[in-house]
Write a protein that binds this DNA or RNA. Structure first.
Length: 426
RNA sequence: CGGGAUGUGGCGCAGCUUGGUAGCGCACUACGCUGGGGGUGUAGUGGUCGUCGGUUCAAAUCCGACCAUCCCGACCA
């Protein structure tokens, strides 16, 4: 992609409305624009990252044996009446009417819809277990949207629902999902914790949250300083106790002492058991030919929230430092004097095509700006590798390689091998 | 919903106390110089000062209502 063509409105100053670093940087890097409180348009650079994360999630879900579907965002009241949630849920459930005055809501989650699909299509235990997922826009009319994309009202989420014959099978799927989420976060190079959690409005037996560790996190978790153990502090506090008092106490798992960390909840997995299947009469025939209520699990991961969380964990005073697996582009070719110097222009064009042919996603900064402007933009949007073609190219056919993380070297432009070295261990 | 704050060109801000018809930096347009850390010269474009109403000869400025946005709290996969 040519920088002169892309819609990339970078900003020197962050708009006043932005408070946390990820919000500021997403606005400054031209990734998003606000449409209304908690509702955003994703611009090309932001969408690139969103899609990268979405694809990692999709690949790992597919690898786990889950199957992708796509459910509607608009859902009829009747389904929500079945589980009593039409009345139970507050104004965060955005209710709307169609032209015939029939009630609908914008889906904040999809247990009702998927359970309706499964009960009408699956009749025998032989078809189970099933794990069905979708990657879709959710709407929750949050009391207070904040921190930009981090807590929006409209957001992109991967949600999956498993249907199992019994508790043991559910446990198996649950652990598979737990493992899948670990793989997703590891591929994104994010530091995270899995903590025991309250199952909240979704209900069910037990649940665990996946937290990205970051100072701006909205959740407070207690982690052991010596073991893997972590727990949401909500579950640890007795009445009247404050969070500070937990620090230094013995960890509930008996290993080490408690440390308090801030985390961004990006994933939540639940064992729902029979509650939804029971309410909606979702049964199949078991091997004795008798109706048997399904056991369900549900597993959510916030795709758009992961974009913000990744930035919270990977930035410096210059801008974003994308983990390579989710960077919008791999390489930025900074051509100094592209519009004036034919040698530079043709060498840049050639390198650009060559790298693209090799399968890299490449930007070419062909704009009529100086080096300062170009490198500042590149550092702001966090491209992992810059290849600078300028004076040294004219003098002796050399380019500078400069990574976002700090390393740099001078190489012959013919030495593509060295350029690619950079990506070897990524 | 309770508490706090903000709203002046795309972004950051000044002007408001003490009313007199809108300004600065960046960005943007044209041309030139420059071309390895947001360079520079000249000439330009762009704003019903959040909205509506009131006071006044006159309102960005004073008064009222409303709207929007942000922060803290309560709430929340």
């Amino acid at each position: 992609m040519l920088l002169s063509k892309i819609l990339l409105p970078t900003l020197k100053d962050a708009p006043q409305e932005a408070e946390v670093i990820s919000h500021k940087l997403m606005l400054r890097a031209g990734m998003i624009r606000k449409v209304a409180s908690g509702i955003y348009t994703w611009l090309p650079m932001g969408l690139k990252v969103l899609r990268k994360i979405e694809n990692i999630v999709r690949e790992e879900m597919d690898a786990s044996g889950a199957q992708e579907v796509f459910m509607p965002m608009v859902q009829p009241r009747e389904l929500w009446e079945e589980t009593k949630r039409w009345d139970k849920m507050g104004p965060e459930l955005l209710r709307i009417k169609d032209r015939h005055d029939r009630d609908f809501c914008l889906g904040p989650t999809h247990e009702e819809v998927i359970t309706d699909v499964i009960r009408s299509t699956v009749k025998s235990y032989k078809e189970l277990p099933l794990n069905i997922y979708q990657i879709q826009t959710k709407f929750r009319d949050e009391v207070r949207p904040r921190y930009g994309i981090m807590r929006g009202r409209e957001f992109l989420m991967k949600d999956s629902y498993s249907f199992n014959m019994d508790e043991e099978s559910l446990q198996e799927t649950y652990l598979t999902m737990r493992d899948t989420y670990k793989k997703v976060l590891e591929r994104m190079d994010l530091e995270y914790k899995i903590s025991a959690a309250d199952s909240g409005a979704i209900g069910g037996d037990s649940s665990e949250e996946f937290h990205i560790l970051a100072d701006n996190g909205e959740d407070t978790i207690a982690v052991s300083d010596t073991s893997e153990f972590a727990i949401n502090t909500e579950l640890l506090l007795k009445d009247g106790e404050d969070i500070k008092s937990l620090e230094g106490k013995p960890s509930p798992d008996g290993k080490g002492t408690i440390q308090i960390k801030k985390g961004i909840e990006v994933g939540h997995i639940f064992k729902l058991g029979e509650i939804y299947a029971d309410a909606m009469k979702a049964n199949v025939l078991n091997n004795e030919g008798k109706a048997s209520t399904l056991f369900m699990g549900c597993y959510g991961i916030g795709v758009s929230r992961l974009v913000a969380a990744a930035i919270e964990q990977n930035n410096d005073e210059k801008g974003i430092i994308w983990p390579h697996s989710i960077a919008p582009y791999d390489i930025n070719i900074i051509a100094i004097g592209y519009d004036k110097n034919k040698e530079i222009a043709s060498a840049s064009n050639q390198l650009y095509l060559q790298l693209k042919e090799m399968g890299y996603e490449v930007l070419l900064d062909d704009r009529k700006d100086g080096y300062g402007t170009k490198i500042k933009d590149s550092e702001l949007i966090g491209i992992p590798l810059n290849i600078i073609i300028g004076k040294q190219f004219i003098e002796n056919k050399e380019v500078e390689l400069k990574s976002r993380s700090g390393e740099s070297s001078i190489n012959s432009i013919a030495d593509i091998e060295t350029i690619l070295e950079f990506f070897k261990d990524k």
